Computed example of a mutant assay.
Amino acid sequence: MKSRRDFLQKLTLSAVSIPLMPAYGTKSFAAYAGESYQGTMLRVAIMGLGSYGTRVADAMKDSKKAKLVGVVSGTPSKVKEWQSKYGIPEKNCYNYENFDAIKDNPDIDAVYIITPNGLHHDQTLRVAKAGKHVICEKPMGINAKECREMVEACRKANVKLLVGYRMRLEPNTLEIVRMRKDGELGKIMFFQGLSGFRIGDPTQWRLDKKLAGGGAMMDIGIYAVNGSRYMVGEDPVWVTAQETKTDPVKFKDGVDETIQFQFGFPSGAVASCLSTYSMNNLDRFFLNGEKGFAELHPATGYGPIKGRTHKGELNKPHVTHQTLQMDRMAEIILEGKEPELPLDGEEGLKDLIIIDAIYKAVKSGKKETIEI
């Protein structure tokens, strides 16, 4: 298995087959399909035309409020392929050297950055300077310092900075959040987040410290970090962490293979999480409260997401995550709407503050304070 994209794709293909029609929240497929939208569309250029960029582009074919209109890529052959496949005009095609000129293109509203982690910071600053809204894949940057600069650049440019937190829009996930908020689980006591798979090709960018910013934590582990926050409903205040490395040739210095980490939250709740590149079958969230529990397994794949609680199975309709994400982001940017769980750059910054603390705890062997 080569990457997290492959891992999440495998989860999708191995899950029970359900029609992949997009749906909002608890609305039925029929209700969503029957809705019409005559308003302004968010016009998006995708930067980075790899496998996930393709997944987003394909999902946007079903979007009601967002459409693909441009591309940014360093590979001319991919640009030509996308022009043909998605009907993208030549004037909306850029490479990594000239995309600053996008500022003079009134037909593009936002740029979705889907490139290696180590490139997000500089690319976000350039897109913001060009006056376009930024959608950035997670992790937003490779450390909190970068993320603060990204947030500030977008604030100064008066553009939105959103992060591709698709799971924060997933219906079964949001049902658990609702149950927690409504007190149906009682006082939250414990969260467990398991995120991992066996990574393949040792030459890929995800195992390059400069491009990835780390290893498994910066790829699959961020799901457990972010998930702990929206499942518990709080930000952690301390962390302890332990790293295990069995293959120092494949996982070079600064590229983590496996990290176990534990959080403490202001309410007294605790979390136990694992991030790894060396074990399969790890995609599970478990939330335990004084009155009940909730579980997602798989918790972060492309779907269908499966869940259950002490009240029974969760059966919200499957959502094409990227279709829903792009429509929701269009509402945020164009209509000023706010999602149930925020998707903004401040959330991306919080995750990197936490990840910085995890790496610090690995090195110190001590409990480290998290200051968000």
Rank of each mutant, 00 (worst) to 15 (best):
N172G: 06
N143C: 13
M179I: 11
V177S: 15
M140N: 06
M150R: 02
G141D: 00
V151R: 01
K181A: 09
E152I: 01
A153Q: 12
A157H: 01
A144P: 01
A144W: 07
R168A: 03
E175S: 10
I142V: 15
K156N: 08
A157Y: 08
R155S: 04
N158H: 15
E137Y: 07
G183T: 11
M150Y: 05
L162H: 08
V163Q: 00
H133W: 10
E152L: 10
N143P: 01
R155E: 10
E149K: 09
K145L: 05
R148C: 00
M179E: 12
L161Q: 03
V177C: 15
R155P: 05
E137G: 14
L162W: 02
R166F: 07
H133P: 02
L185K: 13
Y165W: 11
R155Q: 03
R180T: 15
I188M: 13
Y165M: 09
A144E: 12
V163T: 14
V177W: 14
M167T: 14
R148M: 07
K160T: 06
G183S: 00
R155K: 11
C147S: 05
K138Q: 01
E149M: 07
L161V: 02
V134C: 03
R180K: 15
R166A: 15
E152Y: 04
C136M: 03
Y165S: 00
G164N: 06
V159Q: 08
E175Q: 13
R148V: 07
E137V: 14
P171F: 14
E170S: 14
R180Y: 11
V134E: 05
L169E: 03
C147P: 04
E149Y: 02
H133C: 00
